[in-house]
Design a protein around this nucleic acid. Structure first.
Lengths: 242, 242
DNA sequence: GCAAAAGTGTTCGGGCTACACCCATGA
DNA sequence: TCATGGGTGTAGCCCGAACACTTTTGC
């Protein structure tokens, strides 16, 4: 949160980082201890930072993502600018806290990004202690306007998922069709018929290719593993199906 | 373009204003004369301005729209932030010109908005002399990164039009189904079958209501006029069709 | 052998596409 | 009366929705 001569005074980026794990869609939030009226409040915020003079806003977001997760080249997309005059002052405790922590400018306009990460790739050693993956239904009362930013990010993800191959940014490299279906169901918040879902995958998504490999160590019929063929996807996107 | 103490130093808004007129989709651009190497160049830019300390970025955009068109409450949407380090320096002539005209900060990050206006409502007296409505196919070589901003705006409009009743922001209050179809065709850059188009309107868009009124003064069978019932649209959006 | 999830076909109805002619008006 | 765009119906196909049982594994 600290600013210095190297950052633009009025602009920041905030990241809503989504991950998929244990059949849940989760978001990364950071704990902060806020002193207010003699008490210590535990609050959570989205990872964010100010924009440096020598970087684009996308580079700011990449930097935040790398700092938080230890992973580079994470998928991300800017989705909205938040510029309410009172966005840092909605709650007095939050405002006093940030002011004590080096806020020099009253006006900070922030660019919201959402990012998608394969939690399977994440080495837990990289996870910073104060950061926490929380199921999307359990994200409440974030600091400043971060609750709004989070909700808008989720809305945008729900829209974008329809037309872009975003699920593969969240799934491990090898996944089962049930994992794929569950992820769609979580994001779109609705259930699908298993047989219809699989038919659609086979007919319309030939870029989801079956591997010669199966699940191991499960106490039921092991599922075939699939992977996403990006080259094939791009070809179909350019030339259409058939 | 001038900045002063009342504006944030590094943030601006730029507006891509679309209008529909004479069966063409047009954009408002402003002429600027740029002196470079002893010559006067005629260049065009998108209307834009810096953000004031006492306004949100949306209010900045509204202010730009009102200044340019004389109309308030125009539909608009922010669609992307442009923050390339060299966005003002892509062309030397542009950069020297803006520097002479009071650029104090090298870094200006801009928020792109697109706006939709009913040209039928526009009193021509309000149109500023240097502003010009140009068919989208004739927009070329805008100043700075404005060509990119324009192209991204058009892409976003093409996406948004599928799920939102945006065409009615461009059409006059009373319109014919042919006008409606032509506008869709222009924006999506494809042709539709007249009978199928009309059937779809009648079945799926009951919020497009026929008036008791017809075209006048045309030398062919006069078309029935329709209008958009926003109340009905909202109801259907909430409760679904039927 | 039992619990648990994987995997697999068919039927039906609604929606999309393709397509050609008559009508009302102004000049 | 002619030129111009307005307005209308049908048939075939494809796609999405609904629905239940057998298979394979670990324990």
């Amino acid at each position: 949160m600290m600013k210095n001569k190297e950052t633009l005074p009025n602009i920041s980026a905030d990241c809503v980082i989504f991950g998929y794990e244990e059949d849940e869609l989760k978001v990364l939030i950071r704990r902060e201890f806020i002193e207010y009226q003699g008490k210590i409040l535990e609050k959570y915020k989205l990872p964010g930072n100010h924009v440096r003079y020598d970087e684009t806003i996308e580079e700011t977001a990449s930097r935040i993502l790398a700092e938080q997760t230890g992973v580079e080249n994470i998928f991300m997309k800017q989705f909205k600018v938040f510029s309410d005059l009172d966005r840092l002052k909605r709650c007095e405790a939050d405002y006093l806290w940030i002011k004590r922590n080096g806020l020099k400018e009253e006006r900070v306009i922030t660019v919201g990004f959402y990012a998608l990460i394969k939690l399977s790739d994440l080495k837990s050693t990289h996870l910073i202690e104060v950061a926490k993956w929380v199921p999307i239904n359990h994200v409440h009362n974030l600091i400043f306007d971060h609750q709004t930013i989070f909700e808008e990010a989720l809305k945008q993800l729900q829209l974008d998922i329809e037309n872009h191959p975003l699920v593969f940014e969240l799934l491990p490299k090898k996944f089962t069709l049930t994992q794929l279906q569950t992820l769609y169901e979580l994001i779109q918040n609705q259930r699908f018929d298993k047989r219809n879902f699989r038919r659609k995958v086979i007919l319309n998504m030939p870029y989801i290719v079956a591997l010669e490999e199966k699940q191991e160590g499960v106490c039921h019929k092991p599922a075939i593993l699939y992977s996403f063929d990006k080259r094939c996807y791009n070809k179909i996107k350019r030339e259409g199906l058939q």
